[in-house]
Design a protein around this nucleic acid. Structure first.
Length: 372
RNA sequence: GUGGGUGUAGCUCAGAGGUUAGAGCACCAGAUUGUGGCUCUGGGGGCCGUGGGUUCAAAUCCCAUCAUCCACC
């Protein structure tokens, strides 16, 4: 088994646990946040910087790398790890979500998905088999099954059809990847409908994946709705396998996810909002691009120990962002990644000490998700 | 000094007698959750150089004036 997972500590008060994800490229402590490197790079960051910030595993993207530079080229380069100069673990998304999110110009059938490239408009076809083949060329430690992500809101029948198709595709993904050197994680779908989520989880668990993801969340639904799904869908997954909540999150969602037993997260939010001049602080989000910080010579977050906060002021960062200097978005990206990765370290520590609920209360009482 | 050009948003300009004068950039704010980095959405901004005239109606036509640029003496 190329990837294995071990729960090292189970919290007594919540469903949180500590774990160790073992991969051919090293071990990962869970719960973990995976920085996103869609195009074989965490935007604006170098691999050693991601490592320094505390990143242990990164996510990359099948869809984008297949279109450019092409999975054959990456295999030729010796695989994704060597190509991008990252020797730690890598998880690749299958492309299912991109097909869902990148446009209306797609046609889904049981066979697979016909879609148009966002780069040049050329037509392509992805099936479960194709998605597995491309990911084998890329060579991540963990590949994701090819799924169909239902939108939000979504009618019951539509969510049901997408979920059932995802289940059929999951079986084909497993078959197509038999003997492959990477682990394949299954993805639970079912929209916001409890019985669909239960059905999905039951069917996928029967296939015995080495890990399970909850997909189709963080697609526009209120946070409370997502937490509710986590509450009932989480316990349906085998306790000895890693649970991955795809596309989350914001700091408050990370805390709530761990409380509900999630082991792995990925999200573009920290890096994306950084590039648009917004950062996380202990008190919540801060739009450092705003005029009120033009003469604010204090750090982004006085409690933060990151390189950006130790060396630069809000006024300077605002200047760089306004002037469109690359250093600006690099420094805010450093801060946001550090913030989230450090938060995960603190969460793990709180679980270890059995005080996660207290940590949650303290953190959420100070962190306003939408306000400075 | 003479002739000509140009004066409209912070900047560059569009608008050639007819609704409440527009655009791009800049500025201000919001958005962003399995990434289409430098995007999207919204907002504030104007004595149309100034003064007079013609007209039902003037940024627009006429006169004067000021500023500015160019060419020539």
């Amino acid at each position: 088994m190329p990837v294995s997972f071990k729960v090292t500590h189970q919290d007594l008060h919540t469903r949180a646990r500590l774990g160790l994800l073992m991969t051919p490229h090293g071990e990962v402590q869970t719960p973990v946040f995976m920085p996103v490197g869609t195009q074989a790079t965490v935007k604006t960051m170098l691999p050693h910087e991601v490592r320094q910030l505390g990143g242990e595993i990164v996510l990359s993207n099948t869809y984008h790398l297949y279109l450019r530079p092409g999975h054959e080229l990456i295999r030729e380069a010796g695989g994704l790890h060597r190509f991008m100069g990252w020797d730690g673990p890598i998880l690749t998304d299958s492309g299912g979500f991109q097909v869902f999110s990148l446009g209306p110009l797609r046609k889904v059938s049981d066979d697979g998905v016909t879609f148009k490239s966002h780069i040049d408009g050329s037509e392509h076809f992805f099936s479960p088999e194709k998605a597995m083949e491309v990911q084998q060329y890329l060579g991540p430690d963990i590949a994701m099954a090819f799924d169909e992500c239902a939108p939000y809101p979504c009618a019951y029948d539509e969510a049901k059809a997408a979920m059932e198709r995802t289940t059929r595709w999951a079986a084909r993904c497993l078959e197509a990847s038999a003997g492959a050197s990477q682990a394949v994680f299954g993805i639970v779908q079912g929209g916001m409908f409890r019985d669909l989520r239960e059905q999905s989880a039951r069917d996928l668990v029967a296939m015995d994946f080495p890990g399970y993801a909850l997909g189709g969340l963080s697609v526009g639904e209120p946070k409370g709705v997502m937490y509710e799904v986590l509450d009932y869908a989480g316990p349906l997954l085998p306790p000895d396998k890693p649970r991955y909540l795809m596309g989350v999150g914001s700091p408050d969602c990370l805390v709530e996810g761990v409380v509900r037993g999630i082991d792995m997260f990925d999200c573009v939010l920290p890096t994306r909002i950084a590039r648009n001049g917004t950062v996380f602080t202990r008190r919540g989000r801060l739009v450092v691009r705003n005029a009120e910080y033009a003469r604010d010579f204090s750090p982004l977050d006085p409690e933060c120990g990151c390189y950006t906060c130790r060396n630069f002021t809000r006024a300077y960062l605002r200047h760089l962002i306004k002037a469109n200097e690359v250093a600006g978005i690099r420094l805010t990206t450093i801060h946001n990644l550090y913030f989230v990765l450090n938060l995960m370290t603190e969460i793990r520590d709180a679980v270890r000490r059995g005080v996660l609920l207290e940590f949650r209360e303290e953190f959420l009482s100070r962190f306003n998700p939408s306000e400075n």
